[in-house]
Amino acid sequence: MLASNQGHNNMPHQDQSCLSIDAFSLAYAGKQALHELTLEIPRHRVTAFIGPSGCGKSTLLRAINRLHDLNDETSHQGRIMVEGIDIHSPDIDVSELRRRIGMVFQTPNPFPMSIYENVAFGLRLQGRTAKRKRDDIIEWALTSAALWDEVKDRLHQSAWQLSGGQQQRLVIARTLAVQPEILLLDEPASALDPVSTLKIEELICNLKSQLTLVLVTHNMQQAARVSDFTAFLSQGELIEYGPTDQLFTNPRLRHTENYITGRIN
């Protein structure tokens, strides 16, 4: 029984690791945003990044998808390895990488097209798919995102007519359609009402069997509810990383404790 409280023994082992971040630093416009972060993110688990605003959790998430490429003022050191391959290595196809690592953003961002076309977007980028096969994938993706029953009769209506929660699930379905290995979620429920939030959380738990999920959230209860592992970041540094059960009952460090329980630091 004692052993279960000892975080170190429960940390994801190297072999189970899907995503491994190794002394990764990131500077934006000369300002250091991430300081030598090192953590292993386990396969088929939900890992949550929590921390105060501006702590770098979103930055880290975006770095995994190489979204910081879009800004040419960033520079980085260290490595991020996906299944043993350095995502910054020069012979990596960034588009292919981003297909393998899906990303869902804070505000639902369905494209201004039909529900069907939204889900088909990623497939069309990859080239032509036979219509029947595409239909199958779209149905599968929407079913996986727990949206199929709600939209199957209006696939060709504009995606912008869906509710916020439905839009967010549509975005998840759109990402799932290209069959990523990792799904990054950047505060996916922060703009949603409680019921939609629960639906998204339920979905996150269900998706665990298919892929690895990394979740950034402001809502600590949410992290506690859905994640298996939690990393607490503050001011660009990894403060504490451990099984969610431990982090939320008995964190090792006062800093984490103070943040989790809402104390003055």
């Binding site: 939320f248 009952t249 008995n250 404790e257 989790i260 329980t261």
Partner: peptide, 9 residues
Amino acid sequence: RQPAASDLR
């Protein structure tokens, strides 16, 4: 309050 960590304990 949904206490966590030491508060929960």
